[in-house]
Design a protein around this nucleic acid. Structure first.
Lengths: 344, 344
DNA sequence: TTGAAAGCGGTACCAG
DNA sequence: CTGGTACCGCTTTCAA
C-alpha cells in the first residue's frame, strides 16, 4: 500500500523548494552536484515519479502517440497491425512516450481524430493502411496533428512523412523469378486493392508480365481479405480450371498457407507441381526461416517498420519545422522450398 | 487550422463563469435548461472538448486502462492478444476510457506497473497470460492498482477478478470425442505449460484418458510456442514413429494448420487418416466457420473475453469496494471436417 | 441558479 | 545555485 509522494512532499522532506527539486530531477545544469545527489536519493527512496497528467498539463505536450484503428482493419490486418504496434511501442517506451490505441467503428474514425486533437490526448498519430483514395491526412493537417503514414498516400508522397516497403518492386521481382523458372500461368492472390499497398503489388505483377510481352489473365487474379480460407478456396478453384496456374503469387503468409493446403488436397506437391511465392511480413508467430524457408518470399519486417515509424514521428514532434521524411524499404527476395521450375 | 478553445474562452464568449459552463456540460442538475442549451450550442459551434489531462488532474482519475505487454508474449500470443485488445478497446471507447499499451522487455515488466501506478497513468490494468507460478497480482495489490486477469491465477481465484474459458473442460470434452471415435493414440500439441491455460488443457486431456483407463504417452505430448512450424514439425516426427498417433489435439489454429500441412506432406488425409481437433479463439483472420468448419474445434471468442474483461475492470473502478467477480466461459465443441473414426 | 476561488501536481520565468 | 510565484485547464467546494 505504498502511498505515492508528490513533488511538494518530496521537497518538504528535503527542505528545498519544489523548483529546485524539479530542476534537479530534470537534469537542469544550474543545480549543485551535492543537491542533485541528495534529491535523487530521496526521490528514489520515496519512489517518487512525477504525475504524468500534471506534467503534461504544465508542459503542454501529452507525451503520447495515438493509433486509431477502425474495427474493419481487424478483418485483414489484424496480426500485421499488432506486429507494427509492437515495434512502434518499443520506440515510444525508449523515449518515454505512451501509446494510446483507440478502437472505433469505421464511421467514427474522423471523430476519433478530432477528439485526440481537441482533448490533447496525443502529440501525434500514425495513419494505418492508407487507401488508394485516402483522405485522413487532410483532416490531420487541418487539425494540426503531426502524423506519419505506414504506407504511402498516392499523390501526397512529397508532403507527408511515411515509411513503406517497395511493394511494386517486390512483386515485380517475385514475378520475374517465376517467369525465369518457366511459369506462364501465374495467379495473383492479392489483398484488397482499394488499399494502396495492394494496388502497388498488382502493378508490379502486371509490369513484370508486360515486360515479357505477357498479358495478365483476369481469371487468375483475385483481391480480398487475406485470410487462410481465401487462399485455399481460390487455389482450389483455380487448380480446377482448364488451364490451371502453375504458380501463385500471394500477398500474405496466411493466405499462402491456405494455398499450400489446397495444393495438398488436390494431391499435388508445393514446389514441384505448383510454385508459391508469398509476401512475408516476418510475423513472429508465423516464422518462415530455417536453412531453407518453407515459402519462397519477399520479406520485409513490419515490426521494424513500426520502430522506424515511431522514430520518424517523434522527430517530427521534436522538430515541427523539419521537412517531411520518407523511408522506402527494400524487401528481400528469399528462395525457399515452395518454388521450382514450371512442370512440363 | 482550427484553434481549439478552452473552458475559459468558451465561458467568456457566453458571459458565464467557467463553473456554470462546466456544470452545464457535465450534466449537473442545478443549471437552468435555457442556460444549458445555450452552453451546449456554443460548445458545439466552437468545437470545445475538455482537455483530458487537465480534467484527469482535477478529478484524480486518469480515464485510461493500461495493458503491459512483455515483448516475449509476441512469440506466441501475438494474434490472440490483439483480438483481446480489440474487444477491450471497444468497451473502453464506449465508456470514454483510453487504452494505453506499454511494450516492455520482460525484465522491465514490474517497473512498468510501478510507473503506471506512481505516475498515475491508468486507473487499472489487465493481466495477460497468467503463469502457473504467477506473481504480478501481488505487486498490483501492493500498488493499489485495480486489475482483472485474463485467465486465472492458480491459488488466487477467490481474491481476484478474472475471466477465463473452461480450458480443462474443453480439452477433456475434445479428448472424449476422439476416444468415442475409437482413437487410442492421441497426440497433444499444447502451448507452453508454464502458462496456466496450457496446464489446464493438459489436465483435461489426461483426465479424459484416465477416465477410460488410458495413460498418456509422453512421446505424444509436446509443449511449445504455438507457431505453424511447431505444429508441422511435431506432426511430421510423430507420424514417422512406430506407433504413430491417429489423432491430434492442438492448442491453436495456427499450429493445427501446421499439423494439417504435415498430414498432407505424408500423403495422408485429414479427417480420415488422421483426425485433428484444435482450440479456436475465433480470430477474425483465421475463420473456421462455414456450414462445416474446416477444423473440429473447441471454440471461445477471445474478443468477447476482451469486451467482458473491460467491463469487469470498469465496474471495479467505479465501485472499488465490490467483491471480486469471475466469469467462467464455456467453450463450444464444434464438429468440423477434421475428425472421423479412427482408421482400422 | 450562478460565481469566486481554491486546488489537482507539475514546470518555468524572474529575482536574488 | 536557489526560491517565490504565476500559470497549464478543469473540477468542485463554499457563498451569494
Amino acid at each position: 500500500m505504498s502511498k505515492s509522494v508528490n513533488l511538494r512532499e518530496l521537497s518538504q522532506r528535503l527542505n528545498l523548494s519544489q523548483t529546485t527539486v524539479s530542476r534537479a530531477l530534470n537534469g537542469y545544469p544550474e543545480v549543485s552536484p551535492s543537491t542533485r545527489k541528495r534529491v535523487a536519493e530521496m526521490a528514489e527512496k520515496l519512489g517518487y515519479a512525477p504525475n504524468s497528467r500534471a506534467r503534461s498539463l504544465a508542459t503542454g505536450c501529452a507525451m503520447a502517440i495515438g493509433h486509431v484503428i477502425p474495427r474493419s482493419i481487424h478483418e485483414m490486418m489484424n496480426p500485421i497491425f499488432l506486429e507494427f504496434i509492437a515495434g512502434a511501442g518499443e520506440t515510444y517506451s525508449r523515449h518515454g512516450y505512451d501509446m494510446i490505441i483507440t478502437v472505433v467503428d469505421d464511421a467514427n474514425e474522423e471523430s476519433a481524430y478530432r477528439e485526440i486533437a481537441s482533448r490533447k490526448k496525443a502529440d501525434g498519430v500514425i495513419i494505418h493502411g492508407p487507401a488508394v483514395n485516402e483522405h485522413r491526412h487532410k483532416l490531420l493537417k487541418e487539425l494540426n496533428l503531426p502524423f506519419v503514414v505506414h504506407g504511402r498516400i498516392p499523390g501526397a508522397e512529397a508532403e507527408t512523412s511515411w515509411i513503406d516497403m517497395k511493394n511494386r518492386r517486390a512483386f515485380a521481382r517475385a514475378t520475374d523469378l517465376l517467369l525465369d523458372l518457366g511459369h506462364k500461368r501465374i495467379a495473383l492472390l492479392n489483398g484488397l486493392e482499394h488499399m494502396d499497398f495492394a494496388a502497388r503489388r498488382r502493378q508490379g505483377f502486371e509490369e513484370a508480365l508486360a515486360a515479357r510481352g505477357l498479358a495478365p489473365d483476369p481469371a487468375l487474379m483475385r483481391s480480398a481479405d487475406m485470410t487462410e480460407p481465401y487462399g485455399c478456396d481460390s487455389a482450389m478453384e483455380m487448380l480446377a480450371m482448364d488451364g490451371p496456374p502453375t504458380a501463385f503469387l500471394v500477398s500474405s503468409m496466411i493466405s499462402a498457407i491456405g494455398v499450400a493446403r489446397a495444393v495438398g488436397q488436390r494431391g499435388l506437391r508445393t514446389g514441384t507441381d505448383v510454385s508459391i511465392i508469398t509476401h512475408d511480413d516476418a510475423l513472429s508467430f508465423l516464422p518462415n526461416s530455417g536453412e531453407v524457408p518453407i515459402f519462397t518470399c519477399t520479406r520485409s519486417s513490419v515490426r521494424y517498420a513500426g520502430e522506424k515509424a515511431g522514430e520518424l514521428l517523434l522527430n517530427m514532434i521534436a522538430d515541427p519545422l523539419s521537412a517531411p521524411t520518407a523511408l522506402h524499404l527494400d524487401a528481400e527476395l528469399i528462395i525457399g522450398q515452395s518454388t521450382g521450375p514450371a512442370p512440363k
